[in-house]
Amino acid sequence: MLLACCLAAALACTIVRAQPPQVHHFDWGDQPPGMIGKAQLKRGRPLQGYFQPVEIKVPPGAAVSVASARSFSPPRDHAMIAGMLIGEVYRLKVTGIPNHPGHEVFPTIEVIDRLYPPADQLVRFPIPVQFSQQEFDLALSGKYLVRVIYVEDPENALPRPEDPAAQRYFEVRPEADVLRAADDLGRPVAIMRMGGRVPGSEGLNDEFLFGAPPWVSHEHMPDAPPPAPHGEVELQRDSVRRDTLRLRPTAAVPGIGESIR
């Protein structure tokens, strides 16, 4: 009996080791801001001290700023890129919301994982956090929103083009765990929370700003450039090694509209 118990325990441990390490086993989406990111720092990966670029987009006409030293940074129109520490919670302020003059919204962003882009492409591939007009309408009507942004699994990706103006999302029921749903679809990297929170009578204190952790400002890059013109392919006979490959002259190269179709 003891041997059987040991074998069962060993088998269970083996199965656990084979699991993907990115899944949040002991966290859930309704935890207080900062707890999920702090738990990620204990996993031993190079997350401590890394400023992950995050691209924040708001509808045209609105401006966004990030908490900095018991205040907010100068507002930036439409979009900005900020390098945020993993595990920290950043309070934002969105002003100039269309259809809601004079109102302000104070969402938060918590980065819980990082990307590993090429060394010279850090800012080109930030984590996108896009706020839609509908989400501002919901927040200003008294709703509370939690949105988990995740990296899509390329093998199970939806075969549809990405709209750079609107981030794709799936809605879950209020009683569902939003973090677990994101775990099933990909690798969660950031959590956005918005609604129902304004500065109290004490103003912008550390509790409201979550200590105003440091962040790095990056220049915002425009969206995908327009496609470059596709020139003609000119494959000519090589004069040095013409015996190795016989390529047709330019005029004889078939295109898709010709005999190669």
Partner: peptide, 20 residues
């Protein structure tokens, strides 16, 4: 290298937020 992102959203009423 070409990561793509999506999100999962949950909208709750104000009561849930106050409890939080």
């Amino acid at each position: 290298y070409a990561p793509r992102f999506a999100s999962v959203r949950k909208v709750v009423s104000m009561a849930g937020h106050e409890q939080h």
